[in-house]
Amino acid sequence: MSDRTKPLFLARQSYRRRRLIDASRLVPLFGAVIMLIPLLWTEPGSGSLAVRGLFLFAAWGVLVVVSAGLARLLAVTSDGSGGGAAAPDQAEAPGDGDVL
């Protein structure tokens, strides 16, 4: 059914957008916690350095992928609801208030 892909009403779009902004605010917080895990590795020689390095780079990669996805989605929603490229200001102006 093609109708199901369309939003039921416009408010849903801005609701989505706000949750995306929430997500992009949360990502660095989770990222920070993950990047502080090495604080637990203080014992010298207690684990494989190579594996630990890979862990950090993997976490790094996940951060990149997640924030790339969010950035893309945010750009799409702002283009859809804010009148496109001409008005990025308008689209982002109410970003700080959390109106449902």
Binding site: A32, L39, W41, T42, E43, P44, G45, S48, L49, A50
Partner: peptide, 25 residues
């Protein structure tokens, strides 16, 4: 091979300084 070399190198014996890790980030 590289991973094996890393684990075998003296670098793997260098401890992580927690206070520096946090501060430097």
């Amino acid at each position: 091979e590289t991973m094996a070399r890393i684990d075998a190198s003296p670098i793997s014996q260098v401890p992580i300084d927690g206070s520096r890790w946090f501060t430097l980030i």
